[in-house]
Amino acid sequence: VTTYKLVINGKTLKGETTTKAVDAETSEKAFKQYANDNGVDGVWTYDDATKTFTVTEMV
């Protein structure tokens, strides 16, 4: 189990959250659901070296 981080650069929501998951794909699903639940829709990137997802909304 690995800890993954999500950085949110939204128009109205900014911040970070973490989750523990067995792999990046599992954490990505959880993070995308979290973003969707909070009305964040944007461009996703992933940095495997830091286990960090970033979602950026276009303004």
Rank of each mutant, 00 (worst) to 15 (best):
V1I: 12
V1D: 10
V1K: 10
T2S: 11
T2H: 15
T2P: 07
T3C: 12
T3D: 07
Y4G: 03
Y4L: 02
K5F: 12
L6Q: 02
V7I: 14
V7E: 04
I8P: 00
N9R: 10
N9P: 02
N9T: 08
N9G: 04
N9I: 14
N9M: 11
N9V: 14
G10L: 15
G10C: 14
K11W: 11
K11F: 13
K11E: 09
K11G: 09
T12I: 11
T12G: 09
T12R: 07
T12C: 15
L13A: 08
L13G: 09
L13W: 15
L13N: 08
L13M: 13
L13T: 09
L13P: 04
K14V: 10
K14P: 06
K14Q: 11
G15A: 13
G15V: 14
G15D: 09
G15W: 15
G15I: 15
E16L: 09
E16P: 04
E16W: 13
E16F: 12
E16K: 06
E16A: 07
E16Q: 10
T17P: 03
T17Y: 15
T17L: 15
T17D: 03
T17G: 04
T19K: 07
T19Q: 09
K20E: 14
K20D: 14
A21G: 07
V22M: 12
V22N: 09
V22C: 13
V22S: 11
D23I: 02
D23W: 03
D23C: 05
A24M: 13
A24P: 10
E25D: 10
E25F: 11
E25S: 11
E25C: 13
E25I: 11
T26A: 13
T26R: 05
S27M: 06
S27E: 01
S27Q: 04
S27G: 13
E28D: 04
E28T: 04
K29F: 07
K29Y: 07
K29P: 01
K29V: 09
A30C: 14
A30R: 12
F31T: 01
F31D: 01
F31P: 02
F31C: 03
K32D: 01
K32A: 04
K32F: 05
K32M: 08
Q33K: 14
Q33A: 10
Q33I: 10
Y34S: 02
Y34H: 04
A35H: 03
A35Q: 01
A35S: 04
A35M: 09
N36I: 15
D37R: 09
D37I: 09
N38W: 13
N38A: 12
N38V: 14
G39M: 06
G39D: 08
G39K: 07
V40Q: 02
V40D: 01
D41M: 12
G42W: 06
G42M: 02
V43R: 07
V43F: 10
V43Y: 10
V43D: 08
W44S: 00
W44Q: 00
W44R: 00
W44L: 02
W44F: 03
W44I: 02
W44H: 00
W44K: 01
W44T: 01
T45V: 08
T45L: 06
T45S: 11
T45H: 10
T45N: 07
Y46Q: 01
Y46K: 01
Y46S: 01
Y46I: 00
Y46P: 00
Y46H: 00
D47K: 02
D47R: 02
D48L: 06
D48C: 06
D48S: 10
D48E: 13
D48F: 08
A49Y: 09
A49I: 10
A49S: 13
A49K: 11
T50D: 04
T50Y: 05
K51I: 02
K51R: 10
K51A: 05
T52H: 01
T52Q: 04
T52G: 00
T52I: 05
T52F: 01
T54Q: 05
V55G: 00
V55M: 04
T56D: 09
T56R: 04
T56M: 07
T56A: 04
T56L: 05
E57Q: 09
M58R: 11
M58Y: 14
M58D: 12
M58K: 10
M58L: 13
M58I: 14
V59G: 13
V59I: 12
V59E: 14
V59T: 12
